[in-house]
Nucleic acid binder design. Structure first.
Lengths: 111, 111
DNA sequence: CGGCATCCATGACGATACTG
DNA sequence: CAGTATCGTCATGGATGCCG
């Protein structure tokens, strides 16, 4: 416990977009490339592609290519990827609470 | 739940060092500047200082200055900061498991 | 549709030196 | 002891254009 292995988890979640991608895939089961792109405002194709590749390499998500024209590629979480769910949800919850916390701190500063 | 507030939590944890600092403070209650520096190999003074400042601004840690020569500054987690503990621990645990997962994937690749 | 290749800006991070 | 201050770097992320 003296050494910190949270690095490993953070390495996978870090990046401006990865957790957002995972959130979409946690709530949608299966999504196509452009569905993800639409669901995540501001992300560029390049970023979406690279982040998906990294998540795929880490066995967090699965990439399914349908060899047809026009191409169709579906992304979904792997069973292993599901193990991240509690962490993501905990962070999500904590984040929401933190916003309240900030508001409280702000109103106290106004007194 | 459609929007992802995990951002907020990640913003606080992101950075190469913040989670390591928090881990030390989670396991040690109170630490002085140089104690932290020694406990986290590779970190520079500049990084330690800046990361501590950011955590302090987010009300995660507390900074206690003893006005004396030589100076003495102690850092500890705030009560609010303790709310991050479950997340850090979950990530730590997940990280350890992930290492095993990688080893399994590797040995399978060898078959 | 779902990419990849290229170029470019920014800022996170680091090395080093100095200070009350 | 616990910091600033300054400067340099390199990776991350972003904009754009082309392709099967």
């Amino acid at each position: 416990m003296t050494t910190c292995k949270a690095d490993t988890a953070l390495e996978i979640l870090i990046g401006k977009w990865k957790h957002k991608i995972l959130f979409q895939l946690m709530t949608h089961e299966v999504l196509r490339f452009n569905e993800l792109k639409r669901a995540i405002p501001g992300i560029t194709q390049k970023m979406l592609t690279s982040q998906l590749r990294e998540l795929e390499q880490n066995d967090i998500i699965e990439r399914n290519v349908y060899p047809q024209i026009p191409p169709k590629v579906e992304y979904s979480m792997t069973e292993y990827g599901q193990s991240l769910r509690p962490i993501l949800e905990a962070m999500h919850e904590w984040g929401q609470n933190h916003i309240k916390h900030l508001e409280q701190a702000y109103s106290k500063a106004q007194e």
